Each structure stands twice: as C-alpha cells, then as structure tokens.
Simulated scan of single mutants.
Amino acid sequence: MSFGRGVLTVLRHKGERQKPSETCGKFAVGKTISLRPKEVRSQKTTVVSNRGKSKGCLATFIERKTRLYTAIQMPDRTALSTEIAFGVAASQCSARVFQTTTADRGKEFACYLSLEATHDLQVYFAVPYSSWQRGSNENANGSYESFSPRGRISHKSQMKLYRLLYILINHRPRKCLGWRTAQESLIEELSHLA
C-alpha cells in the first residue's frame, strides 16, 4: 500500500522530517543507552521538550509501562532547572519509582551526576539525533503538542498544563494498555506494590 500526498497530510508529521533546531550546548559524557538494562522497559524515561525561542520550557516524563505522562514547567533549559523539575516529578511518585532515566544530550542534563546521587537512579543517554531510542517520550511529546503547539508552552499556567495532561492524555484509553487509561494502569501497578 502506498501513501499519496493527500493521505500524509492527516499524519502528525505530514510525511516530512524535522531538522534539528539547536546545534550547540550538547555534551558527550555519561552512560550510553546501549548500557541500559533490558528491564528498563517498565521504568522512567525523561526528556526536556520545547526547543523554541521562548525561554520557558517543559521537562516531560513518561512511565514506560503504564504510559503515564507528566510535564513540569521550567523557566529555562539550565541544569539547575532540570534538577528542580526532576525533584518535583520524583516527589509526586512513591519511593523508588524512578530507577533509571533516559535523556538526550542537551546541556540541561549536565546535572546527571547530581540526579544519580540525589535520587539513587541511573541516567542513560541516547545517541545524538536518535530520537527513536526514546520513542515512548517522543510519541507522548507529539501527542502533547497536538493539543498545545510548541510556541505556547511557556504561556500555560501549571493548572492548565495539569488539566491538559490529566484529561486529554492520561485519561485516554490506549490499545497498548488493553483499552485502559494510563491513570488506570498506574493505579493497578501501584496496587501490586502494596
């Protein structure tokens, strides 16, 4: 089956590849994603979204097994802001939910050693320009952007952001979860821990 140009227009990326928007501020230290253990499929992954010109951005987190998606507003893309956002996300979860995290090589993750020490977790890095290695998060970011375009992220209040995540993303039934929502899947997983 071949796709005609008209059919591609209904897809999220319209059949076009996106060019990297930032060419500086990356670093080449840390553990690569190839060293990550296989059981990580049920762990956390993280990425900072919105590389637009506005200073404000989001730190986005997705729990890979239940697909629960969280976003924390950040004033800028610095390591300190990322560390604070990670702390906020970790405080919203029960202890030891964060065991690993996978990030891109943006300058905002220069704090990875501090994250590992503070939160007792392992930070892994994807290969540059290989967003498919963090597919769960990239797909969730795309879903978020379909409801809220990138340029408007910094203008949303935390309450509007929470409403968007809670109603439109985390309470949407998903085929990969047996038509349960991410919220229902998380509650079921946490009930096994009790």
Rank of each mutant, 00 (worst) to 15 (best):
P37M: 10
K55E: 01
P37Q: 11
Q43V: 01
A85R: 06
V29P: 03
V40G: 09
S42C: 14
T46W: 15
S34I: 07
L35S: 12
T46N: 03
C57N: 07
G52T: 00
S42W: 15
G30Y: 08
I33H: 07
C57V: 00
A85F: 14
S81R: 03
S34A: 13
A89L: 11
K38C: 11
T45R: 01
Q43E: 14
L35E: 15
A85Q: 05
S49G: 05
F86Y: 13
S42I: 15
R64G: 08
Q73F: 10
Q43P: 07
K65I: 02
V88A: 05
R51F: 05
D76I: 01
L80Y: 10
T82M: 14
E63P: 03
L80T: 09
K55L: 04
I72M: 10
Q73D: 07
L35V: 07
L58R: 03
S42Q: 14
T32V: 13
R36S: 10
K38N: 13
S34T: 11
R64K: 11
K44N: 05
S81I: 11
T78I: 06
G30R: 00
L35Y: 10
P37K: 07
I84P: 10
R36L: 12
I72H: 06
A79K: 11
T82H: 09
V48L: 13
T60A: 09
S49L: 10
I62H: 07
S54T: 04
P37W: 10
Y69L: 03
I84V: 12
G56Q: 08
E39Y: 15
K38V: 12
